[in-house]
Design a protein around this nucleic acid. Structure first.
Lengths: 195, 195
DNA sequence: CATTCAGTAAACTCAGCAGTTTATTTTCTG
DNA sequence: CAGAAAATAAACTGCTGAGTTTACTGAATG
């Protein structure tokens, strides 16, 4: 028995919070959008903060990282970097993902735990570092510091696709994302190719 | 005749706004910190927003970009990239600079003009692109798209030194900054060296 | 010395909005 | 269908904080 009111309220909250941010979101608006009385909102949720946490929780579970990122000695390194980058890039192109992050980022002061949790969840550094460590071990790339390479690769991807958009709103288009990915893969391979 | 009260109020505001952010800053606190009556604050400034703009204006003028960034065919490219990166890196290490940016970034919704203005002012992309275009023209580097190279170079510098710090507070230490710069310069030179 | 101007301190106004209350209606359930 | 549980609408409470008012002080000017 899926509770309809509950869902209506959550859906309305996502709209309201995403459009207005926490501070400018109005509980009256949430109730109106959900086509539910204000009192009912308070029946299902403790208050504004609880509602905020609830919608973030719900959304975050949509972005569980997919299959494990592992180096595969049998596949060409360029192809693997491309796959890695494309998977990450898909997120930056998704307005659902970027809107969620914007929402939480703006409220990082009010919900420090939530923001820290979310940024830890979406941080791929550890996985990327392991990948590059394995790739270097296997001789597919040549570098002294796998962590630096991983950070550089992620940095190249995020530089113009993720960070600026997090602030200004809007998402990057897929063509630009592809250009960034190609540039990053090329540069990392040229810079660290095994001789 | 430098107006002392005016300066006291500005100084107090910088402290209050930087510590608390716009929303949680209290006009009563500003007055108390400035050791001035609340009424006097309103005598010198129209209101909270005007005060905010005033302190941002004051601070921004501290960060006027220094000498022009130009490619110099007579100097080795590695050295020039290092200088470029170090100049930029110095800003990321400065708590004054980062605090100002954090303050404005958090309030980008409330003061869209201010935020856009500030980010345009500190955006070095145009200068970097020109630099790389000249370097490639002169044969010091070899690449098809100078804009991509410029964005990559800036992206490598900002990836772990600027963007994450903008959100989490704190600044990067100089040793880490140096490591980032070295890594970025090396990668760009290896990736785009003239044969 | 008196008038004016800058400043002070503290009480006050006013609006916005989260959360509550109350009185009433709708919707299940046995 | 009776009675309980859930929901509604709208008025109300209570707080917070920006900006204002008022009554007062003191220093400079002429």
């Amino acid at each position: 028995m899926t509770n309809t009111k509950n869902e209506q309220i959550l859906a309305a909250s996502i709209d309201e919070f995403t459009e207005a941010g926490f501070e400018d979101a109005r509980m009256d608006s949430v109730a109106a959008r959900a086509k539910v009385s204000k009192r009912t909102v308070y029946k299902y949720f403790e208050g504004k903060e609880a509602l905020f946490r609830a919608i973030v929780d719900q959304r975050v579970s949509n972005f569980h990282t997919g299959p494990d990122i592992r180096f595969d000695a049998a596949r060409p390194i360029r192809q693997q970097l491309w796959t890695l980058a494309a998977t990450e890039g898909k997120l930056f192109v998704s307005s659902d993902f970027m809107n969620l992050l914007r929402l939480v980022a703006r409220e990082a002061d009010r919900f420090p735990g939530l923001a820290a949790d979310l940024s830890a969840r979406i941080d791929k550094r550890a996985a990327f570092r392991r990948f590059f460590a394995e790739a270097i071990d296997a001789g597919a790339l040549k570098a002294r510091d796998p962590a630096l390479v991983a950070d550089q690769f992620l940095g190249l991807l995020k530089a113009d696709a993720f960070w600026p958009k997090l602030h200004t709103g809007g998402e990057i288009d897929e063509a630009s994302m592809r250009a960034i990915i190609t540039g990053a893969v090329d540069l990392i391979i040229t810079g660290y190719k095994a001789d």
